[in-house]
Amino acid sequence: MSRYIFKRSLMMILVILGVILVVYAIMDMSPIDPAKVILGDSATEETLAELRKEMGLDDPFMVRYFRYVLNLLKGDMGVSYRNKVSVATQIGDRLPNTILLASCGVLFSLIGIPIGVATAKRQYSTFDNVTMVITLFAAAAPAFWYGLIMVMIFSLNLRWFPSAGMGKGFVDLARSLVLPSITIGIRGAANNARTTRSSMLEVMRQDYVDTAKAKGLDDRIITSRHMLRNALIPVVTVVGLNFGVLLGGSVLTETVFSWPGVGRFVVESIKTQDIPSVLGCVVTLAIMFSIVNLLVDILYAFIDPRIKAQYKRSGVTKNE
């Protein structure tokens, strides 16, 4: 098992190096001239050339790429063109906020699992049909639309929650988290409900459910011990992917709610052509996404012993 994790971690590093290469190449191909961004349009050709040389921008692409990766290993993501502050520091300030919001969003999305179980147990009932129509709408509407609607109802009209910003202190923080968390979590909740429902319907037909019934077990125990644990495997995949997406993709929600997270930082950086910041954000999010993916794969092993056995085998054959 630990061998499997080790192997996966090595692969993860390769993936991240690849992501950096691609992003770095795209940035390099953009018509943005860093020297011009720093010195402004009024700078002369000579001062621009001098700055380019000083920053090493004239070096070949691969040299610059490896320099970036080496600096990255030291935790150095360069300095923002905009305000001369270290990119790593700026991301470090914002990343916890994004992780907090994404985690709350994912937690909220978990309400889809009991909903999925309840609808599967009453397949084709009115409750099932109505719920499935609602989840279809919920999954189809874009996140920022929920944000705007919720701000209108709960902040402007009812004044229950703040409409923007991140509160200080536990109570204010919790209050300011409610609307953005629901906004980024609601589509996940809808997807979780639909995935759980179809997965449960699949599991309910399995013979081992009849075996469990024939033992004289209570319906609740059959649902939780026998059905849900088996039905949860595809759901874990969906939740994990959703978490990965939320870590990097809550740009719209963070903008609507003025949430001081990485998503908003990316947008600002793109607007100001701040290449090191954009690069730093993308790399950070790629790393986060890879880690979440790895965690999901490890989680499988705890749900399904067959996958655990598979991991063990794959670890052994590779390393011995």
Binding site: Q206, D207, Y208, D210, T211, A212, K213, A214, K215, G216, H226, R229, N230, I303, D304, P305, R306
Partner: peptide, 19 residues
């Protein structure tokens, strides 16, 4: 069920819970 009347099913491959 189970205590008075018990049942053995047809396909042992699918009648045990894999987890």
């Amino acid at each position: 069920r189970g205590e008075q009347i018990a049942m053995v099913f047809q396909d042992p491959m699918t009648s045990l819970n894999p987890v």
